[in-house]
């Protein structure tokens, strides 16, 4: 399944950089606060700001492209864009296919969210997004996995009692819980699943990965990455 090119804005962040190379950044655009489509139809969120800043530091011209999650790696591999920056956790399974940059968030926990605190997360029906580390985790537990192609559908499934709970990145669920006014709560303990979030590159493209690695290092070093994390993901989200 191949989802090409869902257009978004060209963003020329680079004033006066004549020979800049155009790098296409692939994201999902459905995963606030990491990345989402704002009211104007543009990619927005933590990763938009981060990606723009990284491109500036690496002296690259970047373009944003959105792509469905379930085919986001195949489309990178077949060359429809050059990097994935879509809240993708670094895992061994994915490392066999793509190369990751340094993580740009520390390992952050996943969490269960449900309508009540006593929801059955051991043996109940748990919603998760197809092809995520959370879906893989549920498949290996005693719970019944209910797969949805996009993150907001997993939350909708809990609200409509399709699923007893949803398992997702905690940073994604925090705003949902806060906005629900008590209707949705976290259940159980947080799960440390991923090894932090990083950008993904084709294995045949170490040069580009090197550039972004350097840019991420420099943002870690001067503290601007931490500021971004606090601004977009909240005070409580782990930072460097």
């Amino acid at each position: 399944m191949k989802h090409l090119i869902l257009g978004t804005a060209l963003l020329a962040l680079t004033a006066g950089m004549g020979a800049a190379q155009t790098v296409r950044l692939g994201t999902e655009g459905a995963y606030p606060p990491y990345n989402f489509i704002d009211d104007n139809g543009q990619v927005a969120g933590f990763e938009r700001v981060l990606g723009d800043e990284l491109c500036k530091r690496a002296e690259l011209t970047c373009e944003w492209v959105t792509n469905d999650w379930d085919s986001i790696i195949p489309n990178l591999v077949s060359g429809n864009y050059d990097a994935i920056i879509a809240g993708m956790s670094i895992t061994d399974e994915r490392k066999q296919v793509v190369d990751f940059s340094e993580n740009y968030t520390p390992p952050s926990p996943s969490a269960y969210m449900a309508k009540s605190a006593d929801a059955d997360i051991e043996n109940g029906v748990i919603a998760a997004q197809t092809g995520t580390i959370q879906a893989a985790h549920i498949a290996s537990t005693g719970a019944t996995l209910l797969e949805f192609p996009s993150p907001d559908e997993t939350v909708a499934a809990v609200q409509s009692d399709e699923a007893d709970a949803v398992l997702a990145d905690k940073d994604y669920l925090i705003p949902v819980v806060e906005e629900s006014g008590g209707a949705l709560v976290f259940v159980g303990d947080d799960l440390p699943l991923g090894g932090g979030i990083g950008m993904a590159f084709r294995k045949s493209d170490p040069e580009l990965r090197g550039k972004f690695d350097a840019a991420i290092k420099s943002m870690k070093a001067d503290g601007s990455l931490n500021n971004l994390i606090i601004e977009y993901l909240g005070e409580d989200s782990p930072h460097f």
Partner: peptide, 22 residues
């Protein structure tokens, strides 16, 4: 319609393999 416990039809599995093996 969501797939439950990764039980799906023939196309569900075909696209699963296509996505995993590229």
């Amino acid at each position: 319609f969501p797939a439950r416990q990764q039980r799906g039809d023939a196309l569900y599995y075909a696209s699963y393999f296509a996505d995993k093996t590229f």
